[in-house]
Amino acid sequence: MTAEQLYGLCGAGLVGLGLFGLITAELPLRRIVAFNLLGGGAFVVFGVIARRGAAAGLGGDPVPQALIITGVVVGFAATALAVTLVRRLHEETGTTKFDQDELPPETVKLSDATLSGGNP
């Protein structure tokens, strides 16, 4: 196995872990970490692609490297925004959980939703 393949598989593994966490985790903070894993996996894959594209005496294609830096900054901003929201939610409600299976509030039964039902 070449180094590139190893790195590529690592990236794919990170993507899988992140995706699993983002979908199944209950705490928002865990989901935020999972998002970072997923993003990190994508960047590792991009790094391998840069390495594969190495030419003209360079160790790697410089375009992906520049884009990874930008992506890291965007991911950082996203994480900061998400963590701020979690903190504010904690300040307001004393918990960082939000109910996963929260029903849309105050739904009415179809049979009650008659045309004249709104009149007091």
Binding site: L22, P28, F35, A78, A82, L85, L89, T93, F98
Partner: peptide, 8 residues
């Protein structure tokens, strides 16, 4: 909570 869900 709605904003956090949207963001995720």
């Amino acid at each position: 909570a709605a904003a956090l869900r949207y963001l995720l």
